[in-house]
Design a protein around this nucleic acid. Structure first.
Lengths: 339, 339
DNA sequence: GTGAAAGCGCTAACAA
DNA sequence: TTGTTAGCGCTTTCAC
């Protein structure tokens, strides 16, 4: 009636607990014949290992460290908040977090070097792209620490996995929405980026242009504005651009600084341009509700933390990574499907 | 260094393990003064209870039973598959599933009556709306079984929770998309439902009409087609309707039978109507990719199972339900953000 | 009211 | 190559 345990398996196979344990964990020192007997007994009884009990006995602790950029970026603050809130909610896992100055390679390298391999099993890092960073990551790997990138990837590094959305796809999705929202209104579309030096922004732009060019030939794209994720700069640049080009029918904001977009739009133009932005924050949510934005493309920080923990634990255990559990979807929010 | 355990708390408070346990679990038989001493010690040490160990010692088993409608409905089959696949992946939890004939109150009641309260702690049921079903659910509750509805709710019953999307919002979202996709093309929109007798379909229609009427006055809505979630019926009805009304610019399919929509559209009209359907299946996915559908509104069966298990366990433990963990979001898929 | 001791299912020395 | 034994952190008799 109750689930069989290693005791039952041991009895059925006529061996001791330790032998069952050896078979279970693929440890050596078991004769072929015994191995088969035990395996057979497991199969017969439908034995299913209790992982919680195993971890308890092992006193397993996955010691993970998240390295995130600081600054006003709402999305990063959301990630940080989630880490803080759920720090104690994971079984057998401790979550440490380090905040480093944003867009600062040297600081990131410093943080990576500051990770103690003796007290850390895995690291998740929002990477900035540089050779120094790559080297520091490689160093950690050499010292036996599992390393994954988070949100922004660094493909040619020795990171073992990337947890985050596909940014080219995100850009394509944005174009697909914005193009349809503007259909019947030929005109220009303006892109607001943080900086084209950041990998994810560059990828989003790429995807956006692919789809817009191919499928919405009535719309043309202005050269991207670089707002450095700063709402004041964004508001100023975008305001000027809107004034200069009365034929702007759409805006795609692919970085942070979304509040600046909302401000630039506060002076009503008729008809107001269609707007698609990234990341659901209190501000983008408000803009969606009051009708000044049309869609928000989002990645869920809660899921991102969850997937990262899962991936790191698998990596540490040398287990296979469940691709479904590790995938971060690109979410689309309109006014009516807001969470 | 290592996390404090009840041993540490006991030592610090100068009491035994049992007393700490009594305080921890709010059992009676502890003097006020002792209680305070123990609580203080926990606070001082930053004690955090190890739930896995507790469940192990308790030999806790959450025995859950899912009751789902059979038939060709892709979404239900997805749920069933997920249940099968992850039946053994939950700690301390056994998942049983029963498939009943669809849209059959009597069969559902029979299944509910067939649940053994002595061997089942919680039930999740895709409800159909009837007094008999309500009564059977109440009976289960009286026998101490936790009951939640899944996907399709039964609000005035004694179910303790509903796990699924807000269907009014889903309809609003569909209208919001379809309206914008058709903008600049005044005309008619046709609704394809399974049956208006099913609660979720009725709710989706309601939400759709709310938004379309208020925000897209250029589009008018034809009376809904009832396709009984059967692709042949849907294909026939919709084909005829499209032929009769050359001014149809949009289609919203709010039930199953999506394949029928694709078939009806296979004879090309120019420009083809904008199409929004429900549930991501291999067929709707294909239609999205080949450009015959514009958007799919989806609820994730994986998440649905997960949330249901979490909710039922909380209910059984008498614990609070985390609203975030229990929420099922309305997902929007376009060609480019397909998972 | 409180405590001692056995045990949940599994692992990890250490013997044999 | 195999078995014995003492835990992991918590719960649960049963005694005091």
């Amino acid at each position: 009636m109750t689930r069989p345990t290693i005791h039952d398996v041991a009895r059925a196979a006529g061996v001791s607990l330790s032998t069952v344990d050896r078979v279970l964990n693929d440890r050596e020192g078991v004769r072929q014949a015994t191995h088969i007997r035990v395996t057979q007994a497991m199969r017969d009884l439908g034995y299913e290992r209790n992982i919680a009990a195993a971890n308890l006995a092992r006193r397993r602790q996955y010691r993970l460290c998240f390295i995130l950029p600081g600054g006003p970026n709402s999305f990063m603050r959301g990630l940080e908040e989630e880490l803080r809130a759920r720090a104690d909610a994971w079984e057998f896992t401790t979550l440490e977090r380090r905040i480093v100055p944003p867009f600062d390679d040297a600081a990131l390298v410093h943080a990576l070097r500051g990770v103690d391999p003796a007290a850390t099993d895995g690291v998740a890092v929002v990477a900035t792209d540089s050779a120094m960073v790559r080297a520091a990551m490689a160093e950690l790997r050499d010292r036996g620490v599992a390393v994954v990138t988070l949100v922004s990837d660094l493909p040619s590094s020795r990171r073992q996995h990337f947890v985050g959305i596909d940014n080219v796809q995100a850009g394509r999705t944005a174009a697909s929405l914005l193009g349809r929202f503007c259909r019947g209104r030929p005109g220009r579309i303006v892109l607001v980026a943080g900086s084209m030096l950041v990998r994810d922004h560059a990828e989003r732009r790429l995807g956006f242009e692919q789809v817009l060019r191919a499928e919405f030939p009535d719309q043309s794209i202005l050269p991207p504005l670089e707002g450095l994720d700063d709402q004041d700069i964004v508001a100023a640049h975008l305001g000027r651009t809107l004034a200069d080009h009365p034929d702007i029918v759409g805006i795609y904001s692919l970085g942070a600084g979304t509040r600046g977009v909302a401000r630039a739009l506060s002076r009503p133009a008729a008809p107001r341009p269609a707007v698609v932005v990234h990341e659901l924050t209190p501000h983008s949510r408000k803009a969606l509700l009051d009708g000044s934005f049309d869609a928000v493309i989002h990645q869920d920080p809660v899921r991102e933390v969850q997937a990262t923990v899962l991936v790191l634990r698998s990596l540490i255990d040398g287990a296979a990574i469940d691709p479904e559990a590790a995938r971060i979807g690109i979410e689309v929010f309109l006014r009516d499907n807001l969470p």
